[in-house]
Computed example of a mutant assay.
Amino acid sequence: MSYATLPKAELHMHIEGSFEPELMFNIAERNGIALPYDSVEALKAKYDFNNLQDFLDIYYQGCAVLLNEQDFYDLAWAYLLKAKEDHIVHTEIFFDPQSHTDRGITFDTVINGFYRAFKDGEAQLGITFRIIACFLRHLPEQAGFDIYPDILRHKDKIIGVGLDSSEVGHPPEKYQRLFQQAKKDGFKIVAHAGEEGPAEYIWQAIDLLEVDRIDHGNRCLDDEKLVQTIVDKGLALTVCPLSNLKLCVVDELKNHPIKAMLAKDLKATINSDDPAYFGGYINDNFRQLKQAVGLSDTEVKQLIINSFEASFLSKQEIDKHLKNVNDQAD
């Protein structure tokens, strides 16, 4: 059984974080924007991060070259081609609308470019999708309320809302009213919690935001009661191993807690987070993690099964994918 060729779902991937340097330079040239780097190599040399904020600084620089609907289409299409190579058959991607609207780009330009690409990916590549709009947590809650009408207006394209950006110092409780409104309007709720922030942030995501899924969640292992609560509620963790390594959440990949998560019956999944910046797409994460911690075939299969069970697909669609996984894994 090979993780590489098994069908899989990806549930934690920031589409802006799949912006490869070569494409960034191409779009910048097309739009007449000068990047502060002499070459692709000079840009890649900056991808040595000590923490989340170091990464975010360069991430937002990359966003700045995206101006037109075709730019957003091209970014999404490039990810879809990578996803096809890795046998992803379903993806649930994040995008950061405020990273673009705060630069004067209209919300419609952003969502229409992304949505058109994913519809083409569904038709031409056989990859189904869901889109989740994330609020930037380093901004005040009111900024989320300001952009929320646009998200609601495109509810036919956007299935859920999330919370990302700088975690420490920005606990989920700051955004409780915003997420209550989104839940009332029928959006799925996810939130980054327990990556760099403490286990308490995960408690807040569960109790105050009423999340349907926890993004990252590594620090739940600091609190056995929290682990049991997550298991009892059937909440999944969207774990991102190479991101954890690159951002120093773990010091070495061999110390990644994925096996401990599985041993505690946590519904962990493997994802690529920001693959252009963190050194790999989903199969790269599986490959390096498998080598580092010695994942068994049974554990690999469970992680892939979890990815579908934790998705926002219908039960009928999930069952179809699980049958395919079981058929190919035998």
Rank of each mutant, 00 (worst) to 15 (best):
F129L: 05
T298C: 10
V249T: 08
L237M: 07
M24W: 08
L125H: 01
L262V: 08
N26W: 00
K290R: 13
K84C: 11
D274I: 09
I270F: 08
L66M: 15
S272M: 14
K225A: 13
P21T: 08
D330Y: 06
L56A: 05
H12Q: 06
V89F: 02
I304E: 00
I131W: 00
L235C: 05
F129W: 02
L67H: 12
D207A: 03
H87I: 12
A9D: 10
L235S: 02
H216G: 04
K174T: 10
Y3C: 09
S165W: 06
A236C: 06
K264R: 15
L81R: 12
A199C: 09
I131H: 03
Q98K: 15
E29G: 14
A133F: 07
L136G: 03
K44W: 00
F135K: 04
H170Q: 12
A64E: 11
T106V: 02
I88N: 02
G162Q: 01
Q228A: 13
A236R: 00
H87Y: 14
G197F: 03
A276L: 09
P7V: 13
D86Q: 12
Y148K: 06
E200W: 04
L35K: 03
D54L: 08
M1C: 07
Y3P: 02
F286A: 07
E92Y: 01
A117Q: 11
E141S: 05
N326M: 10
G160D: 06
L75K: 01
A123I: 09
A329K: 00
Q176C: 09
I305Q: 07
I158T: 01
A123K: 15
A292R: 06
K157H: 08
V325Y: 01
S314F: 05
D38T: 15
P97Q: 06
P171D: 10
A199Q: 14
S311M: 05
S307Q: 09
N31H: 08
E309L: 09
A329H: 10
N218A: 15
D223S: 14
E141Q: 12
D120P: 09
E10N: 09
Q53D: 09
F278Q: 00
K155V: 04
K174F: 10
G217A: 12
D96T: 15
L6I: 14
Q98S: 14
C134I: 02
K174D: 08
Y201M: 02
W77Q: 08
S296Q: 12
S166M: 08
E20L: 14
A292S: 15
